[in-house]
Simulated scan of single mutants.
Amino acid sequence: MGVIGVFGRRTRELPEAVPHGGLAAEADGVRVLRGRRAVLDGASVGVRAGEVLALVGPNGAGKSTLLAALAGDLAPAAGSVRIGGRAAGEWSAPELALRRAVLPQTAELSFPFPVAEVVRMGRAPWAGTVREAEDAAAVAEAMAATEVAGFAARPFSALSGGERARVALARVLAQRTGLLLLDEPTAALDLRHQELVLRICRERAAAGDAVVVVLHDLGLAAAYADRVGVVHGGTVAAAGPPAEVFGAELLGRVYRQPVEVFPHPRTGVPLVVPDRRTTGADIPSKHPA
């Protein structure tokens, strides 16, 4: 890793790119407690450079908690998390910010910053480094990709929920880290912009980044993810390519809703639809909530 020294600042190590297929982050046997309840209990998953990993599962399964653990934002009670080949807790907050960018579920700001300034906040970790020279290009590229350049001067507080979501994503993209962790980035978006966000994820993976995205839409996960991790009962119940993981029995048990899984007639991508011939009330859950 390259080492930089900046007058008046702590010396930081600049990250090196993770080779394609190499582990960018890894959770191993992670246990996370909320009070006395184990939200995660033995969850393990690896995130590789050059791939999109989608985390799916029912409400309350622990998807966002696993994402926060992978980001190094949440210290597990047991198990380990590694980012860039090192234990997450060994990185300082500024060093982590050079290695991973996190998009939370909600984006709130107390002051009416213009959109362009909100996106520029994503460049803060690189201040004083040689990559500070990329600031203008990174901001412009991120705003163009997310289609928010047209309202760059508008205050963030005046935007709709979907517009805010895209601006928040632009901030993450402007950060230009090799690991992107996105928590439900499509939740507030219309059909067009849902597709836009997942295409961006695929583009970042093709450029060598590792992308983890929490999704509720199984169709989007099947269409765009290289691998999916089904989070259920505090652990990753299954992980692998969507065509291998998305089976009617597993999904019906995890979601307690009967489903049918069909290959798309043109692409072969799994299509998951509710089996409305029954309600699912009688389906047992292997891991009760």
Rank of each mutant, 00 (worst) to 15 (best):
T177H: 06
G247C: 12
R10F: 01
V3R: 12
V269T: 12
I83F: 10
D217G: 12
V172W: 04
L218C: 07
A101D: 03
S64A: 15
T177N: 02
V197L: 08
P19M: 15
A225R: 09
R266M: 04
L251I: 14
R37S: 15
A149W: 04
S160P: 09
A61L: 09
Q175P: 00
L181K: 00
G122W: 02
G79W: 11
R99D: 07
R9H: 13
R37F: 14
A77K: 06
V119M: 04
G240F: 00
T279H: 13
V214C: 01
S44C: 04
L215Q: 07
G8N: 15
A61Y: 06
L181A: 03
G229W: 03
R34V: 09
S64K: 13
V172Q: 06
G161D: 10
R12H: 12
R9M: 14
P19A: 15
A97L: 08
V52F: 15
E147L: 12
A222R: 04
A237E: 04
T279M: 13
V45A: 11
G162M: 03
T186S: 08
L70A: 08
S160N: 09
P155V: 01
V231H: 06
A153P: 11
R277Q: 08
P94L: 04
A97M: 07
V119K: 01
A149Q: 07
L74D: 06
V228H: 02
A158N: 08
A17D: 14
P155Q: 05
A77F: 01
T11F: 08
E51P: 08
F246G: 02
R10I: 05
E244Y: 06
H287Y: 15
A97S: 06
I4S: 03
G79T: 09
D28G: 00
